[in-house]
Nucleic acid binder design. Sequence first.
DNA 1: CATCTCACACGCGTCTCCGT
DNA 2: ACGGAGACGCGTGTGAGATG
Length: 261
Amino acid sequence: MIRLSSLPEDEALARCTGGLYCPAQQTEALIHFVSRRAMDIDGLGERWLISFFEHGLIKTVADIYQLHNHADEMVTFEKLGEKSVQNIINAIEASKHTTLARFIYALGIRGVGEGTAQNFAQQFGDLDSLMAASIETLIKTPDVGEITAELTYEFFRAPHNIEVITALRAAGVHWDKVEQVASEGLPLDGQTWVITGALDSMARDEAKAKLQALGAKVSGSISAKTTALLAGDKAGSKLTKAEKLGIKIVGEEEFLALVEG
DNA sequence: CATCTCACACGCGTCTCCGT
DNA sequence: ACGGAGACGCGTGTGAGATG
């Protein structure tokens, strides 16, 4: 996505709202769709997506799931061998089994990032309910205001977006039923945590999942309302800010004792 | 086997939107 | 109107795979 603020004044209004279909945004949509936090298709990055797009192998994100029919053509690309192509095809196949939250995030609806996508998944439980929801209903989702609700509503009213979503589901993209999580009674219920630095024992995503499983909300930036900062190696400005605000700093050992105990 | 390219992981800063 | 928090782009370091 191109930030409006990075555009010259006279181009600021040039952004279209085509979502999954608009030609100017197609490659951006593709790149976002395969990214780690969305559908997580390993090995298929920006470079190959653009090449495949330029050679007409893919036009929309739904075409990614037809790429296995073009394996012979793919190996003819420079720097792309049989092994890489097989890895890409395997990764595409693996991505068919996902979660509703990831799928919503992958759609690239403006204003809907990872957190909001998760909230939508929790709130609506299935894609059809979300797609059918009115602006008034959408606004009832946590962290969703008028603007995001309207953008989401419009997204699901665009025929080409519906087409792509239908094609994705027809290609076999599916997700498990959403489990409604009740955070009440969990040890970290009502707390907001932030993670900084690298952890030795696990990836940050894993640490985030563990904290969420204990009822905590995990945020990306420190504020006065933050309960605690989980600080690993090479912690940067977040640690400084947390210290300044007098926020509790939790080291990896203490964190492990907490999540395992 | 050395080199090159690409994708990924992660941190950080900025901007925007939401809720109060 | 303001502060909090999320979205997003950019920069850097690292590892895997392709090529010659």
